[in-house]
Design a protein around this nucleic acid. Sequence first.
DNA 1: CGTCACAATATTGTTCAACAATTTACAAGT
DNA 2: ACTTGTAAATTGTTGAACAATATTGTGACG
Lengths: 215, 215
Amino acid sequence: MTDDAPSLAEETATRLRHDIIDGILPPGQRLAETRLAADLNVSRNTLREVFRLLTHEGLLRHEPNRGVFVATPSMATIVDIYRLRRLIEVPALAQAWPRHEAVARMRQAVEQAARQQAEGDWRGVGSANMEFHAAIVALADSPRLDTFFGQIIAELRLAFGLLHSPERLHAPYVTRNADILARLDAGDAAGAARILSDYLDQSEREIMQAFARIA
Amino acid sequence: MTDDAPSLAEETATRLRHDIIDGILPPGQRLAETRLAADLNVSRNTLREVFRLLTHEGLLRHEPNRGVFVATPSMATIVDIYRLRRLIEVPALAQAWPRHEAVARMRQAVEQAARQQAEGDWRGVGSANMEFHAAIVALADSPRLDTFFGQIIAELRLAFGLLHSPERLHAPYVTRNADILARLDAGDAAGAARILSDYLDQSEREIMQAFARIA
DNA sequence: CGTCACAATATTGTTCAACAATTTACAAGT
DNA sequence: ACTTGTAAATTGTTGAACAATATTGTGACG
């Protein structure tokens, strides 16, 4: 069906989004329009539309007359993101209905993380962990919030990409996510929210430490 | 300084944003690229960049191959927006520090609303009310959240634009905002948050009723 | 060797014309 | 009134061009 077919600009945005999150286009890199348009086989005008999309998502930083750069997460980025996660994820989970359909997404993410950990696929574990947290936000039933949080997660993944030990960052949280889910299943949403809050504090501390080491 | 000068695309976006929020471009209206580009005296490519910006903000709705329309707020929009306001504004206020610099913004908005109410300028009262609520969100100290909420507010103003009695919607809240501020000043953030929560419930009810009357 | 000034080069922001693909509008036939 | 086909309009994209801006390179000077 043609009305489901993404436009070239949207396909290109998707492609660049992946290249950025996967570190192929590293933070700070300047994206020259002419060169990149040729590499991507699109026209400069199309690429400029794409830049608008990704800049708004926080993955690119636009400097007037000087070009567009892959965003470089700073400590302030991390502080803001974790502040937002506490402000949004924790109440969303505390007020959650245990039979909400997003709980199935949480469960799937927990299972996926366990599988990928067993295979040593830390990137995949990271993805599953982020999916778990997006599902927590989805408990709040707000499409606008889901979209907003998707962008926050993308920025956070960019920050993770700067660090060198994905195992250190993700491994402890696989079982913790399972604990959160078990609490929620047992009808103890407040208890689940407390575990989540602890997780956020600890995760933030570890990222901040890892950032301090590379700064 | 040239690096502070907004690009033509950004100026155009600002202009269209105002035209949408002010109802000059009413909800549902289709924006034909060729015509609008000529009207605005920009090229179609520039206008397409602008459309990307405003679509992402929720003010425009893009239908592939059919064009771009001014967004039409629905009941679902209102439900989502108020859900978000409760999720964000109420905790932001409950956890606020009474000496936070955003409190001065709240105060200024209360004074502005009173001035404009005395002049019968209900549009201005509405603007001041929304500024009051943006200042509440700013208490959370998150630039990402401020930006996100700015977009939510723009959508809400679009919804208000569909209704016919701005006085009914805004008048009761001028003094209530002053009450919220007084509570916060007195160090009773929790009490302020309770008043805010009541306001949100009532405001949502009134908008939903007004929507039901025009649907 | 470092700094400054200027010219050359590269790049961004924008415009315009063109074309293919898609949608819409209109006319004719049943 | 509905269907079909055609014409017209519009969107999505491309590429070339140009003005404005930024960057780079070179030469002169202290």
